[in-house]
Design a protein around this nucleic acid. Sequence first.
DNA 1: CACTAAAACGGAGGCGCCTCCGTTTATTAC
DNA 2: GTAATAAACGGAGGCGCCTCCGTTTTAGTG
Lengths: 206, 206
Amino acid sequence: MAIEPPAIAEQTAEAAETKPLRADAQRNRDRLVEVAAVVFAERGIDASLEEIARRAGVGIGTLYRHFPTREHLVEVVYRREVEALCAAVGELAQKHPSDVALEQWMQRFVDYIATKRGLATSLRILLTTNSTLFSDTSGRVSQALRQLVEAAVADGTIRGDVDASDVLHALSGIYSAPDTPEWRDRSRRLVKLLMDGLRFGAGKAR
Amino acid sequence: MAIEPPAIAEQTAEAAETKPLRADAQRNRDRLVEVAAVVFAERGIDASLEEIARRAGVGIGTLYRHFPTREHLVEVVYRREVEALCAAVGELAQKHPSDVALEQWMQRFVDYIATKRGLATSLRILLTTNSTLFSDTSGRVSQALRQLVEAAVADGTIRGDVDASDVLHALSGIYSAPDTPEWRDRSRRLVKLLMDGLRFGAGKAR
DNA sequence: CACTAAAACGGAGGCGCCTCCGTTTATTAC
DNA sequence: GTAATAAACGGAGGCGCCTCCGTTTTAGTG
């Protein structure tokens, strides 16, 4: 799914914090996270941990050594995906005009939320323990969004009288009622609608 | 633990709502709830359902037929105990002067909360499904309290310028940080303190 | 290389969850 | 009483969770 660079970044970032893992341990850990992301996507948040271990080719004991609870594993997968979402900003900004880049990114954000429903319940348990989780990630996300919005404002493809937090606020409707079948389409339309609004009068105000 | 009258009341109340259970079914159901209350108290909210079934002398299948999820069972136990708490009002009011009755009841309320911690997590799951749970029970509780407060105000054993909701509000500190070892003592002192405040100037205002 | 200590592995085993279905029991009608 | 039938029982079985510990692998050291 992802190519190597992010894996390396991840490794160094985490290795720096604690003592470096033994080579085999690091290998297994990475493998587990990778597989877990797939399995959680396939089967939902309640997927069997034994299946994850099996498909990663490690014993269940190894999974538990690296991730003492289901929530620990979920958290790492979650962080990793937020990372990927934010990392997409650079690429999108290069390939598209700034307003299109913003739109594409927001659509990708919708996809992301779509699969990540059910996380909330599971992550809530962690919030007592690890209160930086949401502030970390929501910080990253809004920073990514800010980058895109500011770029689009700067070259006049969207109106100048809005900022990232306005846009984030407008997107907040996405979080509600996400299990219905129409949810995804509705959210896509919301993004388009928002973009129309943002493009209206672009280049005039400023 | 409890004597028969509440059991009868429970039976008729529930039987009236749906079709009456077969005699053996009713017997087993009652038995399960009774045992569950004990086991939950002993082992906490995560107690094994198989142990409950075993100690109630029924098969695990029977437990699941009556209570499709753990939360269903928890809810019934919870309601039953709220019932008992509220039912204690009458008895206390007869045996004690009105201010003492109020105090005793509040102490019992503390005991009740003490054992019921951890319920919150479990019951939260039900709140989506069964939103009447908390409104029902908190209604019952505050009604019980109101009865006691009004009686005490009426015969002048506590001051006249408070009502039940003031008292309930004053008690709300009890809900916080309930897992520490000092919690129980602190709560008992809170009740005493509150009573001193309530008795102060009793008989004058009115 | 060979050796060693420390680190990591992995799966057996014990327990709990929950479903499914063959057996038993209460109730109703005669 | 007996028969018929609907209701209820209960536990075996399959799966997942998690721990524990004997075995294997890695990373140093000479």
